[in-house]
Structures are given as structure tokens and as C-alpha cells.
Amino acid sequence: MSQLPLIHARGLVKRFGDFTAVDGIDVSVAPGESFGFLGPNGAGKSSTMRMISCVSLPTAGELRILGMDPAREGTRIRARLGVCPQLDNLDFDLSVRENLTTYARYFGIGRRQARARAEELLEFVQLADRAGGKVEPLSGGMKRRLTIARAMVNDPDIILLDEPTTGLDPQARHLLWERLFQLKRRGTTLVLTTHYMDEAEQLCDRLVVMDGGRIVAEGSPRSLIQTYSTPEVVELRFGDERPADVAGKLAGAGERIDPLPDRLLVYAADGDAAVAEVHRRGLTPSSVLVRRSTLEDVFLHLTGRTLVD
């Protein structure tokens, strides 16, 4: 029973007129899993999320959420989902607490229970002291936390988070990640989209890399790095010389050389050895950075582009 996927998609397609936003993807999310869609803006992540959250119907393909068909049982499915959209759509006419209690009513939750649930959730997202206040003066991070609390009001089987920390400052992001990590530890199934590789690495057990409406790779962050990148990466910068011109002189210095407009990446199992080789060839980069491979490198390798432009 626990093996039955909560989300099951085969050949899922979403078209808007002539434009194909999602171009035949297969996805399967198991209970308790924390699953991510990683990709740049326009990769089709949000369209996929809207289909999974049953507000937008697929153009083609098969989609089952909690074993049900969104086209016929959208209401029943939505009753068991928690949705945190990309742009906060909190209700500015209501107080912080009322945003939760009113939302609970849409799920048919009784007044008394809604109120108890709201108190509990405000505590969880650390907004209890703002309960009676208005929504508008809350900071971006607080609003996002309130949106996440709202998404939890019906004690959902799956929480869907579309770009949960986009637009937040680093401190707010870390606080949010910490809260989401708590949820993950409790065994909540999380599905999120992100174009931040550090977010994907922190929160996702498994993820798919999306580009141009398709899935280009799938796996755990670690296995993706193992498959598509080397353990270490050397970032070289050369004052006036263009990275592309230098690249030729570095052939064989690492497993792969990738010249970007502003820097040159050398992929190697041993970064320090690669740096030594660079110096041995008489090159004098203005800066050298040896670091571990990230999902950013995976994405670059798979698509030839960076995640955040």
C-alpha cells in the first residue's frame, strides 16, 4: 500500500495555444518523499505544479494524484493537498489568523477546529505574535511562512511548494528551509520547484532536472552529481583573456573543460591536482577556486546553460 505513488504522471503534456509548456514528462512521487523540480524559469515547472495541484487540467497524458483522476475528482484531490503558490496570494482584507481560519472553512473544517489549527500553525511558522495583525506589513519571509502555514491547514497528504524561497533574503531563506526540513522529518510529502540548486540539495531526496518542458535527468542530488559531474570543480578567472581562448591550452588538465563568458570551469576528480597542472602549463589565472560539484554543474553539463541567468 505504501508503495502506491501519491503522484503518478505518464507522458504529461500542457499546451497553451501553440506553446508547449510541459512536453511529455513522467513523474512518480512516493509517500514521505521530498521531491523537486529543478530548472530555470520557463522550464515548465510551474505548469506542472498547477496540474498536480488540480487547478489546471493536463492537455494530454496520464495523471493520478492520490490514486484519483484530476479531471473527475479535482475537488476530492484538492481537499488533501496543501498548495503554496509562487506568488503569495494571502488575503489582505483579513488578519493573519483569519487568513488561516477562513482558508480552513473552504475545506469544510469547523470553526472551533479551524481556530485551534491556526494557533498551532502560527506557532510552527513563528508568527504567533502577529496573529491579530494585518498581513500587509509582514516581511516577505513572514508572508511566505504564513502561506506555508495556510497550505498546512487541512493537514494535507502532499504539500506543493512553487519556488518557496524565491525573492527572499538569505536569512529568511534559511529560516524557511529549517521549517520545511522539520516537515520533511515528520514524514510530510513535499513537492517543490526551485531554480536554486542549493535549495534542491538541502530539501530534496530526489529530483528531476527540467529544461524546455522536458525532464533531462532524474535522481538524488548526489547521484546526479556522480553521474553528470566530477567530484570537484576548479573555477579559473583570467584578467583580460577570454576563457574560450584559454580553454585550448588546458586540454587534458581535467576530465572536461567548460569555458563560460566570465570564467573557465575545469571538472576533475582532484581539484588541487588540476590546479597544479594549470600552473605547470605556464598559465597564470587571476583567481582560482576549488570547490565541490553542485547541481548547478549538473545542469550546465546537461543543458549548456546556467540555472539563474
Binding site: S53, V55, G74, T75, R76, R78, A79, L81, V83, P85, L87, N89, L90, D91, F92, D93, Y103, Y106, F107, G108, R150, N154
Partner: peptide, 14 residues
């Protein structure tokens, strides 16, 4: 502008 309806339609409300 307030996107109140978007939020509602993500719930069982039709």
C-alpha cells in the same frame, strides 16, 4: 489584483 480567487480555487471550492 488580490488573487483571492486563485487561493480559493486551490482548495476544494469550485
Amino acid at each position: 489584483y488580490q488573487k483571492v480567487f486563485d487561493a480559493m480555487l486551490a482548495t476544494p471550492v469550485r
